[in-house]
Every structure is written in structure tokens, then in C-alpha cells.
Lab assay of single mutants.
Amino acid sequence: GFPHNFQETTYLKPTFCDNCAGFLWGVIKQGYRCKDCGMNCHKQCKDLVVFECKK
């Protein structure tokens, strides 16, 4: 597997964290999205993600 390539992201529609399944709250920059596989997560979850990037 590969490490994720997370970038701070502004979501335009309701989005949930792929790590904890919690809602990504806020208006802008609600969470992080992996540029390579599209995984979404909270800032506090991005260092805890157990799934490797599937590129």
C-alpha cells in the first residue's frame, strides 16, 4: 500500500469521514481528501487512518 496524499478540502455537498463515519462539519475546509484515492476524513482522523491508499 501507499501513504495517503491528503489535502485540505472544501466540500460543496454533505460529506462523511471515511475513517470514523462522522459528518464533516463546516462551510469551508471541512476536512481532508486524498488526491490519489479520494478518501475523505477529518483533520484529527487523517493521522489515524488504518486503510492504505489504493492509488
Rank of each mutant, 00 (worst) to 15 (best):
F51V: 12
G22M: 15
K46W: 12
H42V: 00
T10C: 08
K46T: 11
K54L: 06
C20H: 02
T10N: 05
D36I: 12
F6H: 05
A21P: 09
G22R: 10
G22V: 03
E52G: 12
F16G: 05
E52I: 11
N5V: 07
F2E: 05
C45I: 03
F51Y: 14
D36N: 13
G31F: 07
G26A: 07
V50A: 11
F16P: 05
K55G: 10
E8P: 05
N5I: 12
T15G: 02
K46V: 06
C37K: 00
E52C: 09
C20F: 00
F2C: 07
G22S: 11
C45Y: 02
L48V: 12
K55V: 06
C20V: 00
C34R: 00
Y11M: 11
F16I: 05
K29C: 08
F6V: 11
L24M: 15
T9P: 01
Q7T: 06
K55R: 04
E8G: 13
K35G: 09
I28T: 09
K29H: 10
R33H: 14
F51R: 13
K43T: 12
G38W: 09
F6R: 02
Q44P: 09
K35I: 13
L12I: 02
F6P: 03
I28Q: 03
Q30M: 03
T9Q: 11
C17L: 00
V49A: 14
Y32L: 10
D36F: 10
G1E: 13
C34W: 01
C17S: 00
C20M: 00
D47E: 12
C17K: 00
D18K: 13
C34K: 01
C45V: 02
C20D: 03
F6E: 03
D47N: 05
E52A: 11
V50M: 14
E52S: 07
H4Q: 01
E8D: 03
V50L: 14
P3N: 15
T15R: 05
C53N: 15
Y11H: 13
I28N: 06
D18M: 10
L24R: 04
T15P: 03
Y32V: 13
C45G: 04
Q7P: 00
G38S: 12
M39K: 10
F6L: 09
K13R: 07
Q30T: 02
K29W: 06
L24H: 03
T10G: 07
L48I: 04
F16C: 14
Q7I: 07
G1Q: 08
G38A: 14
C37T: 04
L48N: 05
F51S: 13
C34N: 01
C53H: 13
V49N: 14
V49M: 03
G22F: 04
E8Q: 14
C37Y: 02
C37P: 00
L12K: 15
F2G: 05
W25P: 11
K29F: 07
Q44S: 15
H4D: 02
Y32G: 07
R33K: 15
C37F: 00
Q7L: 08
L24K: 05
D47G: 12
V27I: 09
K54A: 06
P3C: 15
F2T: 08
T9D: 09
C17Y: 01
Q7F: 10
L48G: 14
G22E: 08
C41T: 12
E8M: 15
K55N: 09
D47Y: 10
L24E: 04
T10S: 10
K43M: 12
Q44Y: 15
V27D: 02
K46C: 15
D36C: 06
W25R: 07
I28V: 11
F6W: 02
D36T: 12
V27Q: 07
Q30P: 02
K29A: 09
P14A: 06
G31I: 02
V27F: 14
H4I: 01
P14L: 05
F23T: 03
K54C: 08
K35H: 12
C53A: 03
T9N: 11
N19P: 06
K54W: 04
V49E: 13
C45N: 02
K43D: 13
M39P: 00
D18S: 14
G1S: 15
L24Q: 04
V49C: 07
L12H: 07
R33F: 13
C20W: 01
W25L: 05
G38V: 06
Q7V: 07
W25Q: 09
G26F: 02
R33P: 00
G26P: 03
C41P: 01
Q44L: 11
L48R: 09
C41L: 12
T15V: 04
P14G: 03
N5F: 07
V27G: 07
Q7Y: 08
F6K: 02
F2N: 15
F51M: 12
C17A: 00
P3S: 15
A21T: 14
H42N: 01
C34P: 03
G26D: 03
C37E: 00
W25I: 12
N19I: 08
F51T: 04
K35D: 10
K13P: 03
Q7H: 10
L24P: 02
C45K: 02
T15K: 04
N40M: 10
D36K: 09
D36R: 11
K46L: 13
I28M: 14
K46R: 13
V49D: 13
F23H: 02
C34E: 01
I28H: 07
N40C: 09
H42S: 05
E8W: 08
D18V: 09
W25F: 08
P3F: 15
N40V: 11
C41M: 06
H4L: 00
N19K: 11
K29V: 05
G1Y: 15
H42T: 00
E52V: 08
L12A: 10
K43G: 11
R33W: 13
V49S: 10
Q30R: 03
C17M: 02
N5E: 10
G22T: 05
Y11F: 15
E52W: 06
K13G: 05
C20P: 00
Y32N: 15
Q44K: 14
